[in-house]
């Protein structure tokens, strides 16, 4: 089984909820900025934005 889904980036509002170093983490000051970063990142990486429902977005390449 090959791995074909990758977390490309994490866009977080609360720094304490993310950590490790698997993917680059971007901190946003508010939801608006988070949405903006997420859209831009998704377009650039051709990934999809997923919502973890705790104020954290991840961008995943499918």
């Amino acid at each position: 089984m090959e791995l074909n889904k990758f977390i490309l980036a994490i866009i977080a509002l609360e720094p304490e909820k993310v950590g490790g170093c698997g993917a680059p983490i971007f901190y946003a000051v508010n939801k608006e900025e988070q949405d903006k970063i997420a859209t831009t990142m998704a377009r650039i990486t051709e990934g999809v934005v997923h919502d973890l429902e705790n104020g954290t977005y991840i961008i995943v390449k499918h």
Binding site: D35, A42, V48, V49, H50, D51
Partner: peptide, 9 residues
């Protein structure tokens, strides 16, 4: 189906 983050999407 899937989880979608963006409101616009």
């Amino acid at each position: 189906f899937m989880n979608l983050g963006m409101e616009s999407v």
